[in-house]
Amino acid sequence: MTVTASHLIWGVRRRTIVSDVSLSVAQGETLGLIGPNGSGKSSLLRLLAGLKRPSSGRIEINGQDIAHVPRRLLARQVAFVQQSAATDTNVSVRDVVRLGRTPHRSALAGWSAEDEAAVAAALARVDMTDRRAQPWQTLSGGERQRVHIARALAQSPRVMFLDEPTNHLDIHHQIEILRMVRDLDLTSIIALHDLNLAAMFCDRIIVLQGGRIIASGTPETVLTRALLRDVFRVEAEISLAPQGGAPHIRFRAD
């Protein structure tokens, strides 16, 4: 599914957080959102996913204005993975992932073989099958994040929005999660802090600053020394990999 946004504006009280943002994401594309803290990445993700309503502007998923799509139908198409989530309820890993099937089931519907298969496949994707019966409260922060990604996958979405999905993960699982997302037959929009991971796994990158898009394009065209200096206020060396590989950023300490 495609995702397009036109002239989005959103804010709180008199503060504008997302300012005149327009973008387009092709079917199957992985788009990365990067920018300093407070640049509007999380707010923009929530607008695109339909979790917030813009003050003005329009968001379309596969050509449909999501403002006119019933919430339950939208939830069958779109999944959102937030930075972290907590619950005081003592439930199992499998119970958390089962919640991803809610949009596909009516109030009186029983648990189906299709539901069970979706949950099992989602747990396998994030390498949590062996822990499906483990209590949620006993998981580490990284394990909980993997379970929430599994919950989103169990939803069987066509578009996935992820807000810092690699927070709290060790480097192995950071790479595995982003590789998995990239290889899924989904349109994905991911907010990331790690610029090298964004370069490795995103087809295109959008740079936000002060709620506005200031750069957009492939990682090798967007991630320049000048942009890193001007937007992130860091000095860095950028190595371009041979044969079209992802650029690598090495930050300077001096």
Rank of each mutant, 00 (worst) to 15 (best):
residue 148 H to W: 15
residue 148 H to I: 15
residue 149 I to V: 14
residue 149 I to E: 03
residue 150 A to N: 03
residue 151 R to A: 02
residue 152 A to T: 01
residue 152 A to N: 05
residue 153 L to G: 00
residue 153 L to I: 05
residue 153 L to H: 01
residue 154 A to V: 02
residue 154 A to K: 07
residue 154 A to N: 08
residue 154 A to P: 04
residue 155 Q to V: 06
residue 155 Q to M: 03
residue 156 S to G: 13
residue 156 S to F: 14
residue 156 S to W: 14
residue 157 P to V: 06
residue 160 M to L: 14
residue 160 M to H: 13
residue 162 L to F: 01
residue 162 L to S: 04
residue 163 D to Q: 00
residue 163 D to G: 03
residue 163 D to M: 00
residue 164 E to W: 02
residue 165 P to G: 10
residue 165 P to E: 00
residue 165 P to S: 02
residue 166 T to R: 00
residue 166 T to N: 10
residue 166 T to I: 11
residue 167 N to F: 03
residue 167 N to P: 06
residue 167 N to H: 10
residue 168 H to A: 12
residue 169 L to H: 10
residue 169 L to S: 04
residue 170 D to V: 11
residue 171 I to F: 14
residue 171 I to P: 01
residue 171 I to K: 12
residue 172 H to Y: 15
residue 172 H to A: 12
residue 172 H to R: 15
residue 173 H to D: 13
residue 174 Q to S: 05
residue 175 I to E: 15
residue 175 I to A: 13
residue 175 I to Y: 15
residue 176 E to H: 14
residue 178 L to G: 00
residue 178 L to T: 07
residue 179 R to H: 12
residue 180 M to T: 15
residue 180 M to A: 08
residue 180 M to C: 14
residue 180 M to Y: 13
residue 181 V to T: 07
residue 181 V to R: 03
residue 181 V to P: 08
residue 182 R to N: 08
residue 182 R to Q: 14
residue 184 L to W: 10
residue 185 D to Q: 11
residue 187 T to I: 05
residue 188 S to Y: 03
residue 190 I to L: 13
residue 192 L to Y: 13
residue 192 L to H: 11
residue 194 D to V: 13
residue 195 L to N: 10
residue 195 L to Y: 01
residue 196 N to Q: 05
residue 197 L to T: 12
residue 199 A to S: 06
residue 200 M to T: 13
residue 200 M to N: 10
residue 201 F to P: 07
residue 202 C to M: 09
residue 202 C to F: 01
residue 202 C to N: 09
residue 202 C to H: 01
residue 202 C to E: 05
residue 203 D to I: 07
residue 203 D to P: 07
residue 203 D to K: 04
residue 203 D to L: 06
residue 203 D to Q: 04
residue 204 R to Y: 07
residue 204 R to H: 12
residue 204 R to I: 09
residue 205 I to E: 07
residue 205 I to D: 06
residue 206 I to L: 01
residue 206 I to T: 05
residue 206 I to A: 08
residue 207 V to Y: 00
residue 207 V to P: 09
residue 208 L to K: 04
residue 209 Q to W: 11
residue 209 Q to A: 05
residue 210 G to R: 05
residue 210 G to E: 11
residue 210 G to K: 00
residue 211 G to P: 06
